[in-house]
Write a protein that binds this DNA or RNA. Structure first.
Length: 347
DNA sequence: TTGGAATGGACAA
DNA sequence: TGTCCCTTCCAAT
């Protein structure tokens, strides 16, 4: 999936495209018809993320009339759409060209009509003016479609998609560990909670980093890359990792993940550790040859200039030489997910 | 045409 | 720990 940086980026995109607008909500696929009916015709007033969970807050029209004012809405006055993309969920956006909408955010695959270079104003050519813009027909199994004044958002393949109350939103958030991207760490303290949670467990630190109750938003790429950058053996029991090392991992995650949320792509390699001219000369094979397809990144096509095959130290690089020491990168299954690490740099 | 694989997690045992 | 679910894409038939 879409790790936490993607979900935060999504929440920002929803705020930019739809905040304050009355939305038409439907379920072209039909599996979310009841939930869509609850939200249809209400106003989007909040969009936020915690880890990999996204919450869109809708003002109930009747409550809105009773309250009378635009401001001072408590979470409990809203109906919330909770979405978790899971492994292959994705949002696809299209607009009338009045804003440079992000084309697709979610699972790392090509989306409807996506090209290698995404036009700055997707689908603008389809509209002759803002007034007669019509959303394109949904493609594929679209669970939810949100239509606003100038844009449409389609959701496919989510693990979770449901309408919940403010109470339920708080319950989900309370269960999650601290999120390195959030500027408002929970009262218990972000880094402190993370360090304590790891150090009271015998489970391997590699497994703990993927536990959303320990730290929210980290997925398989950030797990592998953060451990490499810390020089930490993923199989070390949590309780054996020095607190200062964990604090450094946290600080690194803050930088990496906030950068990812801004650019839309995960890049963890330092410039000096990349190969400057791979593929630049005819006959020079790219690192991602036949049988090793390139890792597609979540991106709107404009983020960063680092090629996908230069973005990581160890993720998806098993068998290739470590960028730092040349030792072949290892891979093994750990609790059902693939773990990548360099046995020389990480010990 | 088919069948793994994919940046995830809920649930049962 | 294992099984199942959600959907799409691309390499291998």
């Amino acid at each position: 999936m879409p790790e936490g940086h993607t979900v935060h980026r999504l929440a920002r995109t929803f705020a930019e495209l739809f905040a304050g607008q009355v939305l038409t909500v439907s379920s072209p696929q039909g599996r979310f018809s009841a939930g869509a009916a609850l939200l249809d015709g209400s106003r989007l007033v909040a969009a936020r993320a915690w880890g990999k969970q996204m919450f869109l807050g809708f003002a109930d029209p009747s409550v809105e009339r009773a309250a009378g004012t635009e401001g001072s809405r408590a979470d409990d006055d809203l109906r919330w759409l909770r979405v978790h993309l899971g492994l292959y969920g994705a949002w696809t956006f299209a607009g009338d060209g009045s804003s440079a909408v992000v084309h697709a955010i979610g699972a790392p695959r090509k989306r409807i009509g996506e090209r290698d270079s995404v036009p700055a104003r997707p689908l603008a050519a389809l509209a002759t003016s803002d007034d007669d813009w019509e959303p394109p027909a949904p493609r594929g199994a679209v669970r939810v479609r949100l239509v606003g004044e100038h844009a449409v958002a389609d959701l496919t393949g989510p693990t979770a998609c449901e309408v919940v109350s403010g109470d339920e939103v708080r319950a989900v958030e309370a269960r999650l560990g601290p999120d390195p991207i959030r500027e408002d760490p929970p009262p218990a303290g972000g880094p402190g909670r993370f360090v304590a949670a790891v150090r009271r467990s015998r489970t391997s630190v590699g497994q703990l980093l993927m536990n959303q109750d320990v730290v929210a938003g980290v997925g398989n790429i950030y797990r592998a890359e953060a451990l490499f950058r810390a020089g930490l053996d993923p199989l070390t029991p949590g309780r054996d990792v020095p607190a200062e090392t964990l604090r450094a991992v946290w600080d690194d995650l803050v930088v990496l993940m906030r950068d990812g949320a801004t650019t839309g792509a995960i890049v963890t390699t330092r410039p000096g550790d990349r190969e400057p001219d791979v593929g630049a000369h005819p006959g020079t094979p790219a690192r991602t040859g036949p049988g090793r397809p390139g890792v597609r990144q979540n991106t709107d096509g404009t983020a960063g200039s680092v090629p996908a095959d230069q973005a990581f130290y160890v993720y998806h690089r098993d068998g290739l030489p470590c960028r730092v020491c040349g030792t072949p990168v290892l891979m093994k299954d750990l609790a059902g997910r693939k773990l990548y690490w360099c046995p020389t740099c990480q010990r």
